[in-house]
Design a protein around this nucleic acid. Sequence first.
RNA 1: GCCCCCAUAGUCUAGCGGCCUAGGACGUCACCCUUUCAAGGUGAAGAUCGCGGGUUCGAAUCCCGCUGGGGGUACCA
Length: 494
Amino acid sequence: MRVRFAPSPTGYLHIGGVRTALFNWLFARHYGGQFILRIEDTDEKRFVAGADDDIMASLRWVGITWDEGPDNGGPHAPYVQSQRSDQGIYKTYFDQLLAAGQAYMSFTTEAELAQMRVDAEAKGLKSFRFRGAERDWPLERQRELAATGKPYTIRLKTPLEGATRFHDLVRGANEIVVQHDQLQDIVLIKASGMPVYHFAHLIDDHLMGITHVLRAEEWVPSTPYHVLLYKILDWELPVFAHLPVILRQDGKGKLSKRKDDVATNRFWERGYLHEAMANYLALQGWSYDDKTEIMTLDELVERFTIDRVQASGARWNPDKLRDMNGLYIRKLPAGEVAERMLPFLAKAGLVADPPTDDELTYVHTLTPLVHERLEELGQAPELLDFFFKELRPGADGYDPALLIPKKLDAAQTLVMLRAVHGALNAQTDWSVGALEVSLRALSEQLAVKVGPLFGAVRVAVSGRTVAPPLFEMLAALGRERSLSRVAVAAAALE
RNA sequence: GCCCCCAUAGUCUAGCGGCCUAGGACGUCACCCUUUCAAGGUGAAGAUCGCGGGUUCGAAUCCCGCUGGGGGUACCA
């Protein structure tokens, strides 16, 4: 079994593309087949230089590797269509089609065609299906006109009557039937000489021995053209499996690069784990059973079968992805989380890049404080910044009003914080346990509940009301900084 | 408009004729734990299985129609 993922380098790869690639890859790995990566750069207008590298980086990120591709080559190289076009690979076949009278040179220009559509609509015609007059010309006449230098495209001569039918693995036993009067003579070769997707992908799939075509659902309507071409060329049809589209969060249409934040690289920039992304993506249109959701890449490979792919569209659900990411972060050993957080801390300027040895060990001691609080690694800087930066109450820091617990006033809080400072100052054992014993005793001594007391201290040392556990924070902050922060906080209330 | 595909809670899904008083997950809410926030635990609300006809002793499961949603309709992929 051989499958392929064939992206167009028109920009970054969006997450739906990764899903399609993942399904192909899982399919190949599960059945012991090969997965091929092919770059379909036949659209000169939308071509973006460097997009292929970005696409490959995105695929590698989720763990997808290819047996043959543009970078690692293979028996069917090259794996880039513009290069294949330059080699004349496609010409062989359209010459064959032309000679057999199955395709023809069409001299109608894009502008003329657009006008024809407008006219048809004005006349109230239900639908416009273009078939060029040249489809009935002898090939010689087509060639003569072409020889005068008039630009032309090569179009498929689609049958006028009958129907084309094909099966789809995802849609089950029912055949998809399309009447030929619904088709039109699609362009196979553009006036520029570059083949169009419908033609190039099919030639390459055949030449590369692709046995199963797993692609997104939006290709269903054009599949009849492909089936027709396979038959004309007398080639064996691949097995089709059209994967459900990923719908936008609001359900209004499919995910789009322009409207949605779905560039794959955006996810690693925000601190999504590739393991979580692969797991979530696998569940967009596929499921294992009625309970299992959390699966490693290896487990996915072992369990992935095409019969469990859903036919209906799946809506993009960032909340669930986020939840799953948090779960994966929690599953990671703390040391691993520390390592993965580092780039985010460095980018925020909290540690050097690369970090010093001291910074490295400090990040490791800090990690347990935020480990289970992270849903995205990118949250690490905002959660931890007060451990790295000066902290001051006032205009350029936190609001001193936060120090004052509910039902207490500034004077009472001041007394409390001074007492805390005294107690901590007398503290010789700066361990989490000892600090807790000390402040709990103080709570009793002052006849203040631990809630308000700890709350005030929390703000004093972190500048915020929501933070990691207090004694862990004090311990990580160290004696000097803790004492000075409490003192400064108290002073702010004087 | 026309063609094609799809249809179980707000969302992702399990279900492939009797095991379903419809299971799981996200989200939501409550309670427990608790120094805040999380995490974790327990529980709840939430689906007349889109609607209407059939087939069958029996249908979420099969068939038809309708409706709704999505996709396509390019010298883009």
